[in-house]
């Protein structure tokens, strides 16, 4: 399964809800305001880096870039993808659960 999170972890609990329900080996894509959870030097970023061994974590590059972050500011263990990569994740990982 692919889980998506599009909310800032500072505003809502969507990231936590996703991470506490996603099964080991599942993929998680952070996009829209969800991308802040992938950034270095933040508490959610540390959480995300910590679960990256059990979950495959991805972040949408165009949304990062729009918000003034580049790949070097993404925590270890998180892979940056573009919209084509988002499509590939949906193809490869099966049904999608959107944590809104």
């Amino acid at each position: 399964m692919l889980h998506t999170v599009n909310k800032s972890p500072f505003e809502r609990n969507a990231l936590d809800a996703c991470l506490t329900h996603a099964k080991k080996g599942s993929a998680v894509l952070l996009f829209e305001d969800g991308v802040y959870a992938a950034t270095k030097g933040t508490a959610p970023g540390n959480t995300v880096a910590g679960v990256a061994k059990d979950l495959k974590i991805f972040v949408l590059g165009p949304d990062l870039k729009a918000r003034g972050y580049d790949e070097s500011q993404v925590v270890a263990g998180v892979t940056v993808v573009d919209y084509g990569g988002f499509v590939d994740l949906v193809v490869e990982h099966g049904p999608v659960t959107a944590w809104l």
């Binding site: 399964m1 329900h21 049904p95 999608v96 659960t97 959107a98 809104l100």
Partner: peptide
């Protein structure tokens, strides 16, 4: 609940 979600074909709402 995590296992239930994981076993579904289509998840709506959220």
């Amino acid at each position: 609940m995590g296992s239930l979600i994981d076993s579904m074909d289509v998840v709506l709402g959220g």
